[in-house]
């Protein structure tokens, strides 16, 4: 071929054809497919409520985790409960308790209380009847 002019020469068709009645059947086929494929339309609110439920569930689980952990593993008793038990429930006297304390415990109690000498002096001078206890 020496020259070929696409624009001015005879138009070349694509050469594609379709099966007989293809387009007549296509519409029907398509409408059937759309009606069977069509899923029930859910409103945005419905979709959103699912997210709310999911978020709430995550929040509840998140909040519950520390409690669940505590009830399962925590075997230590807090000081206040122990004090209350010893004071009101048990028949161990103060003297028994004092005997159970060793020197380290006493030092720890002193450092915890941290009573200033000046405060002790002023308390003694303000409460004159304390002399009775001291002389006992």
């Amino acid at each position: 071929m020496n020259s070929f002019n696409l624009e001015n020469g005879p138009k070349i068709k694509s050469g594609f054809k379709t099966p007989e009645d293809y387009f007549e059947n296509f519409s029907e086929q398509m409408l059937t497919r759309i009606n069977t494929d069509e899923k029930p339309v859910r409103s945005i609110f419905q979709k959103r409520s699912n997210w709310f439920v999911a978020a709430a569930a995550v929040l509840i689980v998140g909040i519950a985790i520390p409690f669940l952990n505590k009830s399962g593993n925590n075997t230590s008793i807090d000081g206040e409960s122990l004090e209350n038990y010893l004071a009101y429930q048990s028949n161990i006297s103060q003297y028994d308790l004092v005997n159970l304390l060793d020197e380290q415990d006493i030092e720890a109690l002193e450092s915890d209380l941290k009573i200033d000498d000046a405060v002790v002096e002023s308390a003694l001078s303000d409460n004159t009847n304390l002399e009775n206890y001291l002389t006992e």
Partner: peptide, 10 residues
């Protein structure tokens, strides 16, 4: 079967 093109079309 659904192409009826000649040599030029191909």
């Amino acid at each position: 079967d659904y192409f009826e093109g000649d040599e030029i079309q191909l």
